[in-house]
Nucleic acid binder design. Sequence first.
RNA 1: GGCGCGAUGCCCAAGUGGUUAAGGGGACGGUCUGCAAAACCGUUAUUCAUGGGUUCAAAUCCCAUUCGCGCCUCCA
Length: 486
Amino acid sequence: MQQLRMFDTLAGEKRDFVPQIEGHAGVYVCGPTVYDMAHIGHARAYVAFDTIVRFLRRHFKVTYVRNFTDVDDKIIRRAAELGENPTAVSERFIVAFREDMARLGVLPADVEPKVTEHIDEIIAITKTLVDAGFAYMSNGDVYYAVDRFAEYGKLAKRKRDDMDAGVRVEVSEIKRNPLDFALWKGAKEGEPFWDSPWGPGRPGWHIECSAMSRTYLGETFDIHAGGKDLIFPHHENEIAQSEAAHGKPFARYWLHNGFVNIDNEKMSKSLGNFFTIRDVLKRFDPLTLRLYLLSTHYRSPISFSDAGLQEAQNRLRYLMQTMARLEASVTEGSIEGSMRAPWVSEMVDRFESAMADDFNTPRVLGDLSEAFKLINETIDQPGDRDVDARTLRVVFSHLKNIGSSIGLFEELSADVLARLDTLEVSVAGIDPKVVDELVAARIKARAEKDFVRADEIRASIESMGVMIKDAGNTTTWEIKKTLPLE
RNA sequence: GGCGCGAUGCCCAAGUGGUUAAGGGGACGGUCUGCAAAACCGUUAUUCAUGGGUUCAAAUCCCAUUCGCGCCUCCA
């Protein structure tokens, strides 16, 4: 295989990936806090890391851990609003999250630990930090003393003095340093709590990942990933906790995905400009969203728009139509011999090369274009029968191979096309029966060579936003591929 | 204020020192078609925000400027 290189946030550059244990890779991705429906930002992160993990599995035995934060201020607040208990709320959104991910083709992680099931481990690591003098008790809480960790700020590339200057006014008699953060929060009235050496309470946010990653991957592991917004303070704090507690390096490579932007601004709840995955999937196919997300490099910001999604969906239809033609044309037989195009035998190598360079999925998608052209060309304009048949077999096999890594071409294309038709007809508000009747009338007119009449009928169909495709004796129709004007 | 990221054709988007700057969309022309649509073919950036510099050689490195964005508070 090609040497895999990935951009490591801590190093600030692409580095060769050399796992801790040869042939193995331990990956921890920060999962969602389950207090609401997952949004497109979640979709982006988890599609990106799903694709990365799928690729890693081609070359390593991977242990992929992605947690659920199921106890937290926001969950407690939400539960209070709804009059439910926090566990009911978190469990409900975990189920919804898993459904959303499944639709996007995001495979489950090997381990999906919940914070509430790892309280003992969290208490243990907190105790280590208190005993070693890295943490202190104050007002019923336990805080991490940032001043005790000399390298604090190394991930976010920030000096402590710089941060002190920028810290917003936060009058707190409780913390020694404004940057100190809670490892353990003393229980307040009506909140869930667990017993601990510091009294009843619950974990702070950052400590859970230190505890759970150690449980499943060890004190030092290969890859830790999440959204760019987690770099500071979340991941910075994790490093401080774990490296102070263990006296050894924490994650060896740090991967961070870029934001989803709306109108050139970060999508966020406070701005009110976010979309849930479910909102988007009412109008676009899950694979459309996946293809769309994969068409921009995972570290770059992606600008989210209807026009972009519509373009992706049009492209998805092309890919699926072409795959359908390929599935119908491919035959059993030898794959030895010359190909219709010399690069056909190198498709997988090129894929490997693009992915080995910091998981360049846009390049992968770009490279795929000529394969799809070749499929259509081969079927439309046959040449040497043996060469054609062999070429289609090889292309098919390579596309399946590559597709299994990027989460496309895993379903039968006919099924995806049917799903697209159903969705688009429904979104356009069109009654298929009406169209079918008009199409039948047009077929009759054409059979009678009454092209004036046929064209009139087609015009009326098109005015509904539907386009007609005559292919031989059959006529099909689909929703016009239009891009919304912006 | 501190720190960091980005600016590639009409739009989206790869490329980060060296032959002709991927790919997709759009537009235009062609093949096919009764005509269309789809599919395929062709055309569409001597140029990579701007101004300097380094180099035999830069979109790619350095400096400055402009613009946009992010983090410094919960956030994928």
